[in-house]
Amino acid sequence: MGLALLMALFVAPEDADQGVSQRIFYIHVPIALTAYYCFGLGAWKALRLLWRGEERYDLESYVAIHQGTIFGALTLITGSIWAKASWGVWWTWDSNQLVLFLTLFLFYCAYFMLRFSLPEGPRRARSSAVYALFGVALIPVSFLAIRLAEDFIHPTTFTREGPQMTGTMFATFCVAWAAVTLLAYVLYRVELAGKRADRDLRELRELLS
């Protein structure tokens, strides 16, 4: 975990010589990608739960989505800072990615509301799983919708000129990406282990008393 943090923080920004604000890219994009596949993983586990009916998938799905939401929030924050640095405003509806993440963030916050308002049990597991599946269906659909919405909200389409990535920049990006993925994976394992231990201990306590 320490290694992953070190890599994300110190290896990643080692070059990127043109335009300092470009450096946010190395943390923003990997985090966004990680959030996506956390959501994807959560939905996949949810599907397995519905398919196989094994209870352990419930915790796995929940933890993955929890992770995804944290990374989603980080994407929003770093994206907002990036927008401020390069366009001078804290929020811009021009950036599809940010708007999409806002939608997803709201959606997954609702997921937690749902989860916490249901009594524990197989029914809660399945309800959350169904809602998690809706989430992954929502991602491409809202992406499309936001793309389309652009041209009536802003008739002049905003084109962000993406400078071609050079070799070292691409390498840095890959390292950063790997580091963030690793970080997410380690956090996922740790939280999952904690949640499982918590559940086991509760069961043990009931057995003993």
């Binding site: 300092v20 450096r23 929030a73 980080l74 924050i77 401020k84 640095a85 970080l183």
Partner: peptide, 16 residues
């Protein structure tokens, strides 16, 4: 600009 970059990385670090 540099401060913004520092802020972005700092936020991520603090949250983690």
């Amino acid at each position: 600009q540099g401060q913004y970059v520092a802020a972005a990385y700092g936020v991520v670090f603090v949250v983690v």
